[in-house]
Each structure stands twice: as C-alpha cells, then as structure tokens.
Design a protein around this nucleic acid. Structure first.
Length: 960
RNA sequence: GGGCGGUUAGCUCAGCUGGUUAGAGCGCUACGUUGACAUCGUAGAGGUCACUGGUUCGAGUCCAGUAUCGCCCACCA
C-alpha cells in the first residue's frame, strides 16, 4: 500500500525547522483528494457497518463575513472529535454549512449600499436580494477556504446553505405542520421593534443594557366634573407619577396605584387630566404596581410597555399607539407628531415644566432593551406578527434532558437550559426584512374590495419608496403589473384567512381574488432550529437522514444555548420524534490578550488566518484547545501560540532525528506484547506510552480535549525527547553491538505518538508520519488520518521499570545539580560515586544504568559502590536520594561552608517533610480511618525519609 | 431581583471522582553553539491555592458564608 501514500510530497532531506507554510496546503489537498472527509454510509455487511456512526453537523457560520477565532476554536474542537472517531474506525460525518443570517447580512449589504449612496428601497426587493446573493457568492468560498486552512476535515461535498432547496423544504414543511397543529398563529401582540432595522425581534435578540438616565416626576391634575362652561374642573389636587419615558405621556390611558397603598385609596376611581393634550384618564388600582418605587403611582401606556399592556387588558383600557415604526411620534401625539422619540421627550419635558407639571428630576440607572444587531434602543410596539406557541414544544424537550437522553458538557449548562425552558414564552418568528425564508403564507385579495399596500419605486419619480395603498384593480389600472403586486404587495388585515402551503399555491382555493404572499420573512433561527435534520434531507426519508440522524454531538458556543440549541431540541423532537443529538458540547468565548471580546467593529478582532500564516494551523489549534477547559472563556495571546509552534517544531526535529538514525535501513517497530524481554528503558517508555494512550482515550471520551493534548505534549517532550531519545543516543554510540538496537522502540513510540497527536495537530503529524513510515516495515495504513487510534489496548504496564528509570533520572539530575552549583564546565567529565544504599537490587539497577548516568551527567570515571564508606569522604559534595547516595569529589572546587549549607538545606527540607508525615502517622484517627494502602504508603515514605536524613547527617558530620 | 462562572507562581492558565513535597507555558536567574531541535538544552528562583467557618484521619479539591471581577436571566415604571 506504500505506493498509495503521498510519498512524492515528503521532502528529503527534511528542513531544519518545521515549515507549516509549505506543508499544510499540500497535506490538506492530499487528504481531500483521497476522499477521507466524505461521510460515506457503509455498505451493509461491511465491518464499518457494524460500528456506531459518529456525526456532527457543523454550526453554520454567518455569511456576514469572514471567520474569527471563535470559529477556529469550533473547528478545532469538532475536528478533534471527528478525527478521533474516524481513527477509531467509526463511520463519520462532519457536515458543514453556512447561514444566511437574515438581519445581519441584510444590514451588512445595506451598509455596502450606503457607500454607494443607496438604500435597499432604491433597489426594490428583487434587486436587493440579487445584491445579497452577490455577497453570498463572494463570501461562501472565503469561509470554506478558511475552514480548510484550519485543517477542518469536513465533508465539503455536502455543504449546505440555509437558503438551499433542502432547508427551504424543511422550513415550509415545519411551518405548515405547526400551523396545522395550531402551534403557529398570527396575532397582534406587543413585540420588540427595532426602529433602525425596521423589524420585529424576538425577546432573545434584545440585549439589555444599563444606562444612566433620569426619573422624571410629573404632576397629573385631578379633575372633578365640569364647570359652568362645560370645561373640566380642576380641583387643584394632583397625583405625581415617576417615569423614565415621558415621551409616551401622550399615550397614557390611565394612572395606576397599588390597591393596598393607603396614600392613594381615596384617589382610586377619580379622573386626571393630561394638560397638554387635554385628555382625561382614570386612576385605577392594580396589584402589579410596586408601592416602593417612585411615588407609587404609575402612568399606564398600554401601547408602549408590556406591563402597561397587561394592566390595560385587565382594566379594559384603550391601546393608544402614539409612535410610528421609525420611532417618531404619530398624529395621536398632537403637537409632537413627527418628532423623534427623544426630541419629543425634550419638548414634552420643556412644556410640562413651563406649565408647572414637572415636579422634579432625579438621576436614575435603568436598563433598556437594545437591538442585538445595531444596538438601537428597541420599542415595545403592538404589531401583527407570526408566533410559535412554545410550551407544548418545550415540555418534551425538558424531559429528554432531565432523563439524560441529551447531556450537556459541561453539565452546569443543563440547569441554565432547564430554567429557560421552564419559563419559555411564545416566539415571534416574523421579520419585516427582505433577506430570509419568506413566510409560506398567502392571502387572497379581493380585486375591488381589499386594499393592498405595495411598496413601489417609480423609476421616473423621486428616489423614495413610499408604499402605496390601492385595490388590486386600481394598481392594474395604474399599470402596475400583477408580478409586481405579488412580489411587493402586503395584504394581511386582521381578519384575513392565511393560506399556508409548502408548494406555492397557483390559485385561491375559493376561486376568486389574487394570491399575495406574506411579505415577511422568518427569524433566521427558525431555519437554524431545523439544521440537524434539514441538512440531511428531512422531511424526505433520505438514506443520509436515516443513517446519520440523530447526530452524535452538537458543538457550539454557550452564548447561543437558547437562541439555537434549545430550539433545535424542541423542533427536532417535534419534527422527527427523536432527539437531534445526544451530547451538547459548549465552548467558551475566545477573547484577545486584553480580555476583550473579539469584534471586527471594535477593532479587537484577530484574523485566524494571520495566525495560521505566521505560526501554522497546528500551533493555533493546540493553543486554542489547551488554553481553557470546556465552557470557559479564554484569553488568547500570541505568546501562547508560540508554544504550539514550538511543539510542532520539537516533534519535527525528534522525527527528523529518528529518521536519520534509521538511515537507509528499514525497521520493524517494537511490539508491546513482546516488550517484557526488552531493556529497562524500552520497557519504561513503552509502559508510559501505553498508560498515556489509555489516559487520552479516557479523556477524549469525557470531552477533555485540552487535558488530553497537554498529556501527549508532556509525554513527547519531557519523556520521549528529553530522556528516551537521549538514552537511545548513548545506546547507539557507546555500546555499539553490545545491546539491542533502540530503533524498533524509537520507531514504535514515535509512530504511536504521532497517531495520538494527530487529531490535535493534523498537518505536522501527517507529514511526519508519511516520512517515518517509509522507514518502517509492517505499518500498512495509507495515511495517518485513517490509521487506527491507540487506546492502550496492549495493556502493557511495567511499574517496576517506570520506578527504576525514575531513580536513574534522579541520579543524573543530582549529579547535574552538583555540577551546576559548583560551576563545573558543561563539557567536562568529572569523577563521581553512586552508592547503592538501597541494597543489591539498587546496585544492580545502577550497574544497568551506569553508561547512561555516565554519559547523561558527564561523570567519568563513575564508581558504583555498595556502601557509603567506599566513597571518598573528604572534599565531596553529597546528594542523598532514596536508596542512592551520590558523591562527587570536588578537590579544588570544594568549599566547606557551601557544602555545609547545601546539606543543611537538604536536611531541613527532609525534616520538614518527615514531620508532616509523622503528624499523620502518630495520629491514631489516621491509622484507624484512612485506607490501609494510604497508611502503608506513608510508612514507606517515612522510612525512606529517615534513611535520607541519616545519610545527610552522616555527610554533614564528615565535614567536621 | 434571581442564577452561573472565575479568583492557584510576575503573566496566561491546568489540576478528573478529596490522599506523596500543588503543575505547565511564557517571563525571570545562571550556564551552554556536545552531530534532532537556540522555535533548543541544563540547573534554578518563584505559590499562606481570595477570605472566614465547617465536614473529614486528611481539603486547592466537598459544604456554608464573605469579598471581588465577569457573564446570563428578569415586565419596578
């Protein structure tokens, strides 16, 4: 199979440092050309068919612009999971897509138009949509290219856009089904209105922001009957109301107080006057009023405040809308008509003050709702909109989570989800936008009777786009075509009967009139909520849907748990009768090094491609995945990415070295099952590797990707490179022919390490693996991306070897330490004694390790003795370890005071520890209640530390 | 007004079900161009694990409270 690998791409000789810039693109094309990313359904009867499939539907990035580091994190996490399962042999699907992102994209294109001095109304709906499609065609390839640069092994052949035919069908089918089930209704309700975007918003798209404002105290004069002239008679009394929104004063239809409020008992039922507009309103009692706030009396404006609306409903108050959709006041506002809401506020306050009705003004902190997309303060407004009844959908979606059928990682998000779901409210899904899934509803307009609102642009007329209202026949008579009316007409009075259909209906069911489609589009999140199955072809029972659904993991940011995750669960259960995924993995927010949110508009964003260009995708991925745990935010700094880059380079050079050692030969990698016969250090590294593999398997199963990556890093760098390779060098150089070659173990451990690391750092590992396996016999896999992932399945463990090598390492370190302290030239060999105070076994171990100790600590001649008395006592530096005492004669370098200090410090440290252990062991409770194993361990440690102290004190005594 | 998360070395962060002397990277100190790697090596300094109390033989880890920073939810105008 070797000829199937991409041998042509491996460059020889290998560069001195890893160069991601010349590697990544080539490796990616190799993978993609081989079809490794394709989510193929296994043939029945094939080995893969017996495996549990693993699927992730990628959260579709907005078409609004380019990817940011949050997307890079998303790609890293999902790609790790996908690559891991692919290497485990599971059939995998990672299905990518892009979201049309209605309001965001419309705004982005409108901003672009504004630079040309145009508004969307200048273009008209059709032309505008064409412009947005141009935008889509421009950004789609950029986005998919960015995923590729990050190494995402997604199935590009199945990429979906949320406005493609498949999601269109799913959206219309769902809408129809919900309408037929009475879960979707059209009604006039109080919704959040963005005066700038000119659309309704759902509650979740409103961001509450704290603002410094004022609380104005306004006097409402009491009226009692009429005077002789029939004019209202003012009693001279008044009620003072505190408000943060004086501009809605003209929309007041009552003043309310709490029925329990003694201050106002006598006022209830009386009449008040709005002086400026000379309207009379009642004083009424309502439980909703907090007595403590302000004066305890509240102005009630049912058309402009949700609470007031409810009060109004309870008391049969008139809903008096005083505002236009652009937040200017309408004709109901009398003298303020036409003014912007804030100008009107100023004007009213001025007028009230002049008339003596403004009692006082206090500074006040309030929270205002702002538009998620443009941060304009939203208006609560009565409006005809489409809604989804959520409670029936939420109930089963609560159950599946409570029953553990869907699990959140980290699990604390489960409570957050449940809390929101249990207090769910109806969802306003219609948007007055031009970009999105158009509501699949038609109305039948009577040709002569019903008046249709059509937004037209007269090419010869002024460039405004005022809507015109006329009957169908009048429009036709004016030369407006049927097509234009259909495309731009809005006709949906309160009583209209909607015709809801999946396929665009040809004609009205009752024969007469003309069908006009509802001009609204759906909330982007409506189509997003269908994503896990609309992408797979639902409502058609496609093979893809049947095989991959329910999907395995939904991986996304915790910030869209309500906007998206909750809705996918509800709509998934509703539409398919099954949960859409069994695990929700939530990642945190990537911030810049100052902790700021990455934002293009704030200029705090970091382009992931710039990082990739400079450090490589592997470095970025390693950094993103290790910089924080699941569900936690992270601050990403360039310095941090360097660590990933350095690690890739370390790996590169370790492999380069192993390949060079192998030279022109080919080696058969070691087999763990036969490891028992190998030299100590071989058993050590294989045992460590197998343990690591089991640990990584366990961690990945728990979605602890960061910890898994850190452990592999630690192993590769601090055990394999720092010690095993160094020992192997000694073995090759010093004992040519005398011992077994370390090459099979080097090859085995390195090859396995590359496998372990591949999901995290796919590019460099594939590149190195391809080079390495050319030197190896018996590895048949054609590419690392599809090689089997190690799980420590050999079970080879050699605890004794691990302990023994730790001792040898400690001895080497002790000698190096003495050398460093005494400033012995690094290259110089010095004489040293290692005394096996731990008996014959220790002595045997030291004999085995002698060559390594000698070379790695530059100790020559190296004497191995059985008793401390065998080593010199005069002018020596001593280090006492467990079972070994290291003695280094220093002759000219010796300094009695310094050595005494050294020993005294060691004794002090050892005694401190001894007393810690002693306090445990002398505690009867500890002996009685702690597990025997723990007690035994402490006793062993105590014996060892006592021996150490004795050794150290003997050495100190020698100093005199 | 509820809820959640963070607070561990100078900086950025790990530390899973409580059990050796709490770790990493960067930064810092000293030394080093020994034929994988200066994107490196060797040795080292540096922490009352925010605070208080509790549970336990034993707490960075569990519980309660406090402080502080951040986030989410919420119809006190």
């Amino acid at each position: 199979m070797t000829e199937d690998r991409h041998t042509e791409t491996v460059q020889q000789p290998m560069a001195k440092a890893y160069e991601p810039q010349t590697t990544e693109d080539r490796v990616y094309r190799f993978w993609e050309s081989r079809g490794y990313f394709k989510g193929s359904i296994p043939e029945p009867g094939s080995p893969a068919a017996a495996r549990q499939p693993f699927s992730i539907i990628m959260p579709p990035p907005n078409i609004t612009g380019e990817l940011h580091l949050g997307h890079a994190l998303m790609d890293a996490v999902e790609d790790i999971l996908i690559r891991w399962h692919r290497m485990l042999g599971a059939p995998t699907l990672w299905l990518p897509g892009v979201d049309h992102a209605g309001i965001s994209t419309q705004n982005a294109v409108e901003r672009q138009l504004a630079k040309e001095g145009l508004s969307r109304h200048d273009l008209g709906r059709d032309e505008f949509e064409k412009r947005v499609w141009q935008w889509v065609h421009r950004f789609r390839p950029i986005i998919s290219e960015q995923h590729r640069r990050l190494g995402a092994s997604a199935d590009w052949s199945n990429e979906v856009f949320t406005l493609d035919d498949k999601p269109q069908l799913a959206v219309r089918t769902t809408f129809k089904k919900m309408f037929d089930d009475n879960l979707i209704y059209r009604g006039e309700r109080m919704i959040n209105w963005c005066p700038r975007c000119q659309t309704a918003l759902s509650d979740l798209e409103v961001v509450h922001e704290e603002q410094q404002g004022s609380l104005w105290y306004i006097r409402y004069p009491v009226v009692d009957g009429t005077d002789g002239a029939g004019q209202p008679r003012l009693t001279g009394e008044h009620i003072v109301v505190a408000t943060t929104r004086p501009e809605t004063y003209v929309g007041d239809t009552a003043v309310a107080v709490n029925p329990k409020d003694d201050r106002y008992t006598s006022c209830i039922g009386r009449t008040l006057m709005l002086p400026i507009i000379q309207r009379q309103i009642p004083v009424l009692a309502d439980e909703a009023i907090e007595m403590e706030f302000g004066t305890g009396a509240v102005k009630v404006t049912p058309a402009h405040d949700p609470t007031d609306f409810e009060i109004g409903q309870r008391h049969g108050l008139r809903i008096l809308n005083v505002m236009n959709k652009d937040a200017t006041l309408n004709e109901e506002a009398g003298p303020y008509a036409g003014m912007d809401r804030y100008d009107a506020r100023k004007a009213m306050l001025r007028d009230l003050e002049e008339l003596g009705y403004l009692e006082k003004t206090e500074p006040h902190t309030l929270t205002v709702g702002t538009c998620d997309r443009c941060h304009t303060v939203v208006e609560p407004l009565m409006s005809w909109q489409w809604f989804v009844t959520m409670k029936p959908l939420a109930l089963p979606a609560i159950d599946v989570v409570k029953e553990g059928k869907i699990q959140f990682v980290p699990d604390r998000f489960e409570r957050i989800y449940l809390n929101w779901m249990e207090n769910i409210r109806d969802w306003c899904i219609s948007r007055q936008l031009w970009w999105g899934h158009r509501v699949p509803v038609w109305y039948c307009a009577d040709e002569d009777g019903d008046r249709i609102t059509v937004t037209l642009r007269d090419p010869k007329g002024p460039p405004d786009a005022a809507p015109r209202v006329a009957t169908y026949n009048e429009f036709i008579a004016d030369g407006v075509t049927h097509e234009t009316i259909v495309a731009h007409g809005a006709w949906a009075p309160a009583g209209a009967t909607p015709i809801v259909a999946i396929e665009t209906p040809e004609r009205s069911p009752n024969g007469g009139g003309h069908l006009l489609q509802d001009t609204d589009v759906l909330d982007t999140w409506f189509s997003s909520g269908l994503w896990p199955f609309s992408t797979l072809g639902w409502p058609l029972r496609t093979p893809e849907f049947e095989y991959w659904y329910p999907t395995s993991v939904m991986e996304t940011g915790y910030d869209i748990i309500f906007l998206w995750v909750a809705r996918m669960i509800m709509l998934g259960i509703y539409n398919t009768g099954e949960i859409p995924f069994s695990t929700v993995y939530l990642h945190g927010t990537v911030r810049n090094e100052h902790g700021q949110r990455m934002s293009k508009s704030l200029g705090t964003g970091v382009d992931p491609l710039e990082v990739v260009e400079k450090y490589g995708a592997d470095a970025l991925r390693y950094t993103l995945i290790t910089s924080s745990g699941p569900g936690n935010d992270m601050k990403l700094s360039e310095q941090r990415v360097e660590q990933g880059r350095n690690f890739a380079n370390k790996l590169w050079n370790a492999t380069r070295f192993v390949i060079a050692m192998i030279g022109d030969r080919k080696v058969m990698p070691a087999v763990p099952s036969a490891a028992a016969t190998l030299p100590l250090e071989d058993r050590w590294i294989i045992s460590r590797l197998e343990g690591l593999s089991r640990s990584v398997d366990d961690l990945l199963g728990k979605f602890e990707m960061g910890e898994a990556a850190r452990q592999v890093y630690e192993f590769v760098w601090n055990e394999f490179a720092d010690w095993y390779i160094e020992i192997a060098k000694v073995r090759v150089r010093e004992s040519e022919g005398a011992t077994v070659s370390p090459l099979p173990v080097l090859a085995y451990v390195l090859e396995r390490s590359l496998r372990l690391l591949h999901p995290f750092m796919p590019f460099v590992t594939e590149e190195l693996w391809q080079a390495l396996v050319q030197k190896i016999d018996g590895v048949d896999d054609e590419a690392l991306i599809v090689a089997a992932y190690p799980r420590g399945e050999s079970g080879f463990t050699d605890a004794a070897a691990e302990r023994d090598v730790d001792v040898l390492i400690d001895v080497v370190r002790a000698i190096r330490n003495i050398r460093a302290e005494k400033k012995v030239e690094p290259g110089k060999f010095i004489e040293a004694y290692v005394v096996a105070t731990g008996g014959d076994e220790m002595r045997a171990l030291l004999e085995i390790g002698a060559t390594y100790i000698e070379m790695l600590s530059r100790a020559r001649p190296l004497h191995i003795d059985a008793a401390v008395g065998d080593a010199p006592r005069d002018q020596v530096a001593t280090a006492v370890l467990e079972g070994v005492t290291v003695v280094v004669p220093l002759a000219g370098l010796f300094d009695t005071a310094a050595e005494r200090a050294r020993l005294e410090k060691q004794i002090a440290d050892a005694e401190a520890e001894a007393s810690r252990i002693d306090s445990k062991l002398s505690n009867e409770q500890f002996r009685a209640k702690a597990p025997a194993k723990v007690v035994a361990t402490e006793e062993e440690r105590m014996a060892a530390i006592r021996a150490r102290i004795a050794g150290l004190q003997a050495s100190l005594a020698e100093l005199g």
